[in-house]
Design a protein around this nucleic acid. Structure first.
Lengths: 182, 182
DNA sequence: CTTATTTTATTCGCTTAGCTAAGCAAAGGT
DNA sequence: ACCTTTGCTTAGCTAAGCGAATAAAATAAG
């Protein structure tokens, strides 16, 4: 290959990618700060609020962590009055985590500046431009995640999709992110 | 999913974005696991190895955390034989963190599967496709990060291409993202 | 030159987040 | 009725982060 400029383009794309990551990373903190919760807590609350109720298992799967982690996480959310535990009647092993009024409000009122900014700008684009962006993003995503990899719209905070988006699918592979050992 | 009517293009693009984030997130763990370090540790080691030496302050600034955090982080890297502390002669307050041979090797040999996969696929694309991807990614990045945002190629780890690709630059501004409160 | 201020790193105590391993209780199978 | 799986919790550990309090060196004032 012509090392010269071909390489340059690869670099450029990597850097753009990095900017995207960085922006989202910072956004997470920003958003959590505004809501008075940590990013992880907010994420869990979001999942709960999205469907109105979720089991610990479901949350763990969605977040890619173990149940034990979720237990502690929910403890904190309960302590802050964001969610409540409701033992399920259909299956008494399970516990349904439901948002409190405050929790629901928190999620709904979260500024989510980043996404709003993005959405605003995206929707201001011409039709063909939008189409092109979608096509490219999907292509890049495919290049990165190689195998299929559950892409539930976790980024989507409020509004976006309807209330009862089943979300069911969730191959739930990736049993545990298995982070490094000590 | 309900791509039918509920899923407009904005949604689709957000989901693609989310896939990209997710892939990178997982990649961080993967990479760290291969290197025997956590993602954060690896990142710090990377910074140190990049320039051959860095003060705690510099690392803190680059990573956007406090010095206290860096101290503990470096402790762990020292314990693992990845870096060493070398008191500076020019300014006896500061401590230069330098990589050990093992640490240097670790950074250089890090597989960085994600990036390699991406680069491989990217470079297999037709010329116009590459150009289009670059243009779109930059556009999206601009939509997301709005303001300035030091976009140094931090993603670039073992870096596929040549040994001495510039990379130097690093404005090293970014006074400190002042991460979320606790 | 002496004193005050700022800078750099560390230590201490605490919180969040993550894991594994053990355990209990409810559902299901055979 | 007995195992087995499933769902959640507890307990104990590590990593990562913070702020506050030092300690020591480098600067700035005086």
């Amino acid at each position: 290959m012509f090392e010269g400029f071909l390489m340059d383009r690869t670099d450029t794309s990597l850097i753009a990618l990095r900017r995207i990551l960085r922006a989202t990373e910072l956004h997470g903190k920003e958003l959590a700060q505004a809501a008075g919760l940590t990013a992880v807590q907010f994420r869990a609350l979001q999942i709960v609020a999205e469907t109105g109720s979720a089991t610990a298992k479901a949350i763990a799967t969605r977040m890619g962590v173990t149940q034990a982690t979720v237990t502690a996480l929910i403890d904190r959310l309960v302590r802050q009055g964001m969610v409540e535990r409701q033992p399920s009647q259909t299956d008494r092993r399970q516990v349904n985590i439901v948002p409190t009024a405050a929790g629901q409000r928190t999620v709904e009122e979260a500024p989510d500046a980043l996404q709003q900014r993005y959405v605003r700008k995206f929707e201001a684009l011409a039709d063909w431009e939008q189409a092109q962006i979608v096509a490219t993003l999907e292509r890049v995503a495919a290049m990165l995640d190689a195998e299929e990899l559950d892409a539930s719209p976790v980024l989507a905070t409020g509004h976006i999709h309807g209330p009862d988006d089943g979300v069911a699918g969730h191959p739930a592979q990736r049993p545990g992110p298995k982070p490094v050992a000590g």
